[in-house]
Structures are given as structure tokens and as C-alpha cells.
Design a binder for these strands. Structure first.
Lengths: 208, 208
DNA sequence: CACCGATCTGGCCGCTGTCAAGATTATTTG
DNA sequence: CAAATAATCTTGACAGCGGCCAGATCGGTG
């Protein structure tokens, strides 16, 4: 593969931007092999560098996967913003929820990695910052749906829990028995749940 | 460590019930080291057998962890039954939810393993049977809360999603920012959510 | 008693993550 | 411009891991 002619694609001794390259390769690799199947050495192989090169940039495997998770949170934030697209009121919450669920369904491995893998340091500044940003989108949408800015952590937790729960169950839970409908439209299963979430949040601010 | 005197605790060549012993050790080990830190060899070491012995009973590390997950579902089922203790109506659902959340908080690693680890074969008969049994408890409680036996998969999904979501977020999500209250009572954070779930399910059967 | 299948041991292979030392390049300093 | 320093990457080594195999040991059945 490595050309001997002075080819611009031939890697010089210094890669230039190996940090970013490794993060991208890792993201792709973790999608293919799953969290457990992930390997630092395979990652280095695909990036065309020595097996120990990643260590210098990320320390250990947890460091690299933490970067992947952080980028996942950033993509999730962006996705929710795009879905909302300036909407206000109940529709804002509905669209945010849909963005959340769709993200999980389209990138299930990274989604699980972000929230529930023991190979990610969620407390790291890099990761918690990105996570807080994503959470901020949800907070904003709930506030818009409620209509007032008083922050009620209970209703916030409820909304987040329901959205996160349906995402997780759709990603990993084919133990939805007797549910039956397993045809193409995957997010269809979440429709009813999303509507109920929005309804419940609304009924909170207008109790009757 | 191996005694040379004819000690009854000294393992004979045949262990007698190595399958069960390994499953127990694995459960304990996975709690200590996490899913990723788990090791077949360490497992065999603690059981006092050769490193390849587990392979004969479980085939594979996935096989062993699948057994651990299945036992987790059985314990979850039992826990929910005990919490419900024959209650009916909305209180049945409320208690089931509390049992679910408490189980997750008391055994977080096994809980995540059961639902969202790629080292568990959730489709295996052993595991899906145990999972279905646990799900059955939830179905029964929702039916009792609704008051009628018509099975509405939408409301079922909603209830499960919310319960599962709050459990997952409490287990792995210290990214509940500005929530603040992090004192002893852990399940306190779930109280409001559980109440809202029950309320939402109730308001479905009595829309006004 | 002899046999056979189930159970368990020990050794082997390739793979992994991490560490340390050396080679190469970029950058700053004199 | 040259020399010293820092950053980057390679090579080599080590222990631990999972999976596989041949062989030793044991329990039950003829």
C-alpha cells in the first residue's frame, strides 16, 4: 500500500493531524466491531501508524474512546438543534425528542458508548462539557414547552428519562415481546411514546 | 493454597457443580471489575479450577456473561414481585417501578450488562425467557393500573421507557447538572419521575 | 471388570494494552 | 543561520487474555 515514489499520500514521519485522524478511525471502528471488539492496535493499523502511536495522544484506550464519546455528544447537540430549527412550544420538545431518538437509532454503538460504557471517562472536562451542552438543548426545549422559565428538575428528569429510555430500549431491546410490528420504520415505535412525553409535560403546566 | 491433607474443602478432580459455582463467581467478579475488566481466567482462578475449565461449561465468555445476565433478570423479576406484594391499581405500577429502579441502583453493573452489553447474547432462549418473565411483571402492573385488560402497546412502551430511562440515568449519568441534590437517598431522584409515570398511565385510561 | 462419555488439566497460539528506549522532525532559542 | 529543545512517531519487549487441542481423571453403565 505504501508507495515508494514521492507521493503526497505517502505518510511522512509526522502525520500532521494524527489526533483527529485517530479519533475518526476509532469512531468508525467502534461502529463496526462494537465496544468490546474495539482495539487500539487495529485503530493504529487503519491510520497507518505504529501500534503505540495512539498512546502518545490519548494515553490509553479509555482516553481515545472518551474523545469518541465527546464527539458523539457534540453530534447529538447539533442534531437536536437541526431538528428543532427554531421551533417553540410543545413542538420544540417533540422535535428535540425525535432528534434524540433518531440519533440513537442511527448510531447505536456510539450512543451506548456515550452514556453507559465503562471505557469512557464521563467525568472528564472534555466529555462532561459536551454532555452538558446536549443536555442544555433539552432544558431549553422543556422550558419552551412549559411556557415559563422556572426550572423544574422533576419534570426535566421525567422528560429526559422517557426520551432516553425509549432510545435505549429501541437500540438494544428486541425483548419487546408481542409488540409485533418490526417493519421498516424504526422510529415508529417511539411515536406514541414521544407524544405522551410531550402531553405529560404540557399537562404539568396546565394541570387540567 | 491447595491443601495437601485429605481436606473436604480440597477440590477433587471433579468439582461437582462447577457450572453454578462459576456463574456465582462471575457475577461477583463483574461487579468488582466492571464489564470490561471481567476476565475468564480470573474467574477460573477464583473458582480454583484451570483456566480453560469455564470453556467446557459456557463455551465462551459471552456464554458465561449471558448466564449472569439471565440470573439478573430472574432476580429482577423476584424483586418486582416482592415490591408489589399483591398490590393492585396504580399502587401496583408504582411499586413495580420502585423495584425496577432500586434493583438498578443496587446492582448497576449487572443491570447494564443485562440490557446493553455486547458481551451478552440477549436472543438466547435462556436470556430471553428470563427477560420476558421480568417484562411480564410490568405488563401485569400496567394492566392493573389501567383497570382493563386491553393490552395497549403504546402505553406499555411509554411506561417501560420512562422507568428504564430513569434507572439508566441514575446508574450511569452523573451528568444530571444543576440538579444538585446528591445526598444519601439515591432513589429520591426517581420519586417525582415515578409519580409522573403512574399519573400519565392513569390519565390515559381516564383522559380527563 | 472394562468401557465410554463427561469433566477437568496443561500447553500452545495469536492477539491485546502498556511501557521504555531510540529515531525523526518541528520549533524555539542563541 | 545554527544549535538546543520539545514534540512526534517507531521499534521492541512484556504480561495477560481468549480460544483451541491433546491428554489425564472420574462417574456411571454394560
Amino acid at each position: 500500500m505504501t508507495t515508494d515514489a514521492p507521493d503526497p499520500t505517502a505518510r511522512p514521519y509526522h502525520h500532521g493531524d494524527l489526533f483527529d485522524a485517530l479519533a475518526r478511525v476509532a469512531e468508525e471502528l467502534v461502529r463496526e466491531t462494537g465496544i468490546h471488539g474495539f482495539s487500539l492496535r487495529e485503530c493504529a493499523r487503519r491510520a497507518g501508524v505504529a501500534h503505540s502511536a495512539p498512546g502518545h495522544h490519548f494515553g490509553d484506550v479509555t482516553g481515545l474512546l472518551t474523545e469518541v464519546a465527546a464527539r458523539g455528544f457534540e453530534r447529538l447537540t447539533l442534531r437536536m438543534q437541526q431538528y428543532r430549527a427554531g421551533a417553540e412550544g410543545p413542538e420544540a420538545l417533540e422535535r428535540i425528542a425525535r432528534g434524540y431518538v433518531d440519533f440513537a437509532l442511527e448510531d447505536p454503538v456510539v450512543f451506548v458508548l456515550m452514556f453507559h460504557s465503562d471505557r469512557v471517562e464521563r467525568g472528564s472536562p472534555r466529555c462532561s462539557r459536551a454532555g452538558d451542552a446536549a443536555f442544555g438543548e433539552l432544558v431549553s426545549a422543556v422550558a419552551s414547552a412549559k411556557g415559563d422559565d422556572t426550572r423544574d428538575n422533576d419534570v426535566l428528569r421525567f422528560a429526559w428519562a422517557a426520551i432516553h429510555g425509549i432510545s435505549m430500549l429501541l437500540v438494544d431491546g428486541p425483548l419487546m415481546p408481542a409488540g409485533g410490528n418490526r417493519r421498516g420504520g424504526s422510529s415508529d415505535l417511539a411515536e406514541g411514546t414521544i407524544r405522551r412525553i410531550v402531553h405529560a409535560v404540557m399537562s404539568y403546566v396546565e394541570p387540567a
